[in-house]
Design a protein around this nucleic acid. Structure first.
Lengths: 145, 145
DNA sequence: CTCAATGCAAACTATTTGCATTCGA
DNA sequence: TCGAATGCAAATAGTTTGCATTGAG
């Protein structure tokens, strides 16, 4: 089942409506490997669909997060970002503090250790965030000068 | 060298001044195991020192973060929190999404794997955040009913 | 038709800043 | 004395909401 299907099913099930704005936003959001903030996605959408309002983008992103198609990210720059959840493997992020580049990584051994830690404290993990901040290869080369 | 010493040295070195407000804020901040937001610390301080303004608390916390005595935390509730850095071992956090309890944990094996991941991408880690969200032992018992 | 969704503007929250006054060195 | 710090109020930035109108079911 693809993501558009998941979304329309979720809308029907919640008694919500399948509007053209929602479909456009979902489509642009999915066809991107970026980590959009509400503002960025709004600006991008405005080029092709000038009538879509900021609030609609915001509310749709929230909706996508609710139904599990998007996850909210926060890299400490004061903006909430969203990325598509591709049902697949969970990943975390390397964030370059100089150029802003974001690299996704997967490390099952870390996931496993997390579970171990949680168990140690009787905790039941529902989600987690793990971000490594530093200089990407390009930026650390540049700063050696 | 204790933390008050570190702070006064830092101030002198930067040509900044050692004011009574800064000392009071530092003291209250250090003598706490909480993870204060600016607002919480301001409210707490106001009881004993009603003349200290919000902006001063805010600027002092920033200053403490700058000189390495505090680290900024963000658990996604829209408030930046600060915790004292005790020069010791780095730790991360378990956050109970029901009652708000925060538990600190240390897991050197995770730190090590992080380095490994960073190396894989030519990244030079400067800092990181790792938070596990879920239910603490009390809350997951309560929700079993 | 009906009620949810939209777009706009306004409200809100957390954070940051400008400025006259105070105060440490 | 002099410039940094303070406290207040106002500005900012990101997010959220109220409401009249539009539009899907």
């Amino acid at each position: 089942m693809d993501q558009i299907q998941i979304f329309t099913d979720y809308l029907r099930q919640q008694g919500l409506k399948n509007t053209s704005q929602r479909m456009v936003i979902l489509e642009v959001f999915l066809n991107s490997n970026l980590h959009y903030s509400t503002e960025e996605l709004y600006l991008k959408l405005r080029k092709s669909h000038p009538r879509i309002g900021y609030a609609t983008v915001h509310r749709t992103l929230k909706l996508l997060a609710e139904c599990g198609l998007a996850s909210e990210l926060n890299f400490g720059d004061g903006q909430t970002r969203y990325e598509p959840c591709r049902g697949g493997q969970h990943h975390d992020h390397l964030v370059c503090t100089r150029c802003g580049k974001i690299i996704e990584f997967v490390e099952p051994r870390i996931e496993k250790l997390q579970e171990e830690v949680a168990e140690r404290y009787g905790f039941k993990i529902m989600s987690h965030r793990h971000e490594l901040y530093g200089l990407c290869s390009d930026c650390s080369v540049a700063s050696e000068s």
